[in-house]
């Protein structure tokens, strides 16, 4: 029983940790701030999910489940909201985009006004 629990814990913790590392490496490597926000929001959320699930399986009390659920709920709500706000602030400041960006309809609409339906 303990061995099964340990194996599940190791799998969950390991996948969470590797996604967190990949997210950090993406923040260093990707070409512009929007791509970095892709990496940070997605990988941090799934990484924390994996690590919290591993912690709950290993500790195994209702206390841990409730605390981990609260932390996870907060993370799933707050990480995307934080990246929306950062992206909005960066765009309103006129952040230079990657050279291969095909089109920017937000800049078009800020210049000409949004289309009427």
């Amino acid at each position: 029983m303990d061995t099964v629990r340990d194996v599940i814990t190791v799998i969950l913790l390991g996948s969470g940790l590797s996604f967190m590392l990949i997210g950090a490496w993406g923040v260093v490597r990707l070409p512009d701030a929007y791509h970095r926000l892709h990496a940070s929001s997605k990988c941090s959320t799934l990484g924390l999910f994996g690590m919290l699930a591993g912690a709950v399986v290993y500790i195994g009390t209702v206390d841990a489940l409730i605390k981990a659920a609260l932390t996870l709920l907060f993370t799933v709500v707050a990480t995307p909201v934080g990246s929306h706000i950062l992206a909005k602030a960066a765009h309103s400041r006129g952040l230079r985009q990657w050279d291969h960006t095909l089109s920017d309809e937000l800049a078009d609409d800020q210049r000409d006004g949004p289309p009427q339906v």
């Binding site: 969470g16 940790l17 967190m20 997210g23 950090a24 923040v27 701030a33 970095r36 926000l37 940070s40 941090s44 990484g47 924390l48 690590m51 932390t71 993370t75 990480t79 934080g82 990246s83 950062l86 602030a89 960066a90 400041r93 952040l95």
Partner: peptide, 16 residues
Amino acid sequence: ADRVLAADVLSLKVVG
């Protein structure tokens, strides 16, 4: 913006 998002990632690593 790059610095702020890196700081955000750093704080999530501390949570980890």
